[in-house]
């Protein structure tokens, strides 16, 4: 029972395969289902260094296999998620993490998309305000009640300034 195996070899599929190989299939037994789940979660989120853009779960590289063995052993020994991640980061650096840590140099990475969204909404609000000035709007249809509602709710108060450029 586990989450889907994601990774990176689609490189290949979207045209230009850098040498992606079908993933490694390895039967492993863990004492508990939680450990099994943790193991698979870890090998999907950790990057194989040799292949550059595949996670450990998908790579056939010998080093990836060694690291899977190492992680399986640690998980079986009762080590938790943080310990395994710390073990690998200490040896290979943050590069192995497909989930980049939140630090000052990644604030922009994590916040960026939402900053863009806020900027987009801000620009949207400005445009809507400017475009919705009542004075210039010709009566579109006789549904005056609805129109009045819309005006009350959404229109900008100033009718003089917000004209389109």
């Amino acid at each position: 029972m586990r989450r889907p195996r994601r990774g990176a070899a689609l490189a290949a599929v979207a045209l230009f395969w850098a040498g992606a190989l079908p993933g490694a299939i390895e039967p492993r037994d863990f004492p508990t289902a939680e450990q099994d789940a943790l193991y698979h979660e870890l090998i999907e989120e950790l990057r194989c260094l040799v292949c550059q853009n595949q996670n450990l779960a998908e790579s056939n590289a010998p080093l990836a296999k060694d690291l899977r063995d190492e992680i399986a052993a640690m998980v079986t020994a009762g080590k938790g998620r943080e310990e395994v991640v710390a073990f690998l980061v200490a040896r290979y650096g943050d590069f192995v993490l497909y989930r980049p840590p939140l630090r000052p140099d990644t604030w922009l990475l994590w916040a960026g998309p939402f900053v863009l969204l806020v900027a987009g909404i801000g620009a949207l609000a400005l445009v809507l305000r400017r475009r919705s000035t009542a004075a210039g709007a010709p009566a579109p249809d006789p549904g005056s009640l609805e129109r009045a509602r819309a005006l009350l709710r959404g229109s900008a108060p100033d009718t003089t300034e917000g004209g389109p450029r």
């Binding site: 889907p4 195996r5 994601r6 990774g7 990176a8 070899a9 689609l10 490189a11 290949a12 599929v13 979207a14 045209l15 230009f16 992606a20 079908p22 993933g23 853009n53 779960a57 998908e58």
Partner: peptide, 18 residues
Amino acid sequence: WAYYELGWGGWWFWDPVE
């Protein structure tokens, strides 16, 4: 294609190429 060809059944990988 990735789904059936690569043998592990993933269909989107967030690879730079995708």
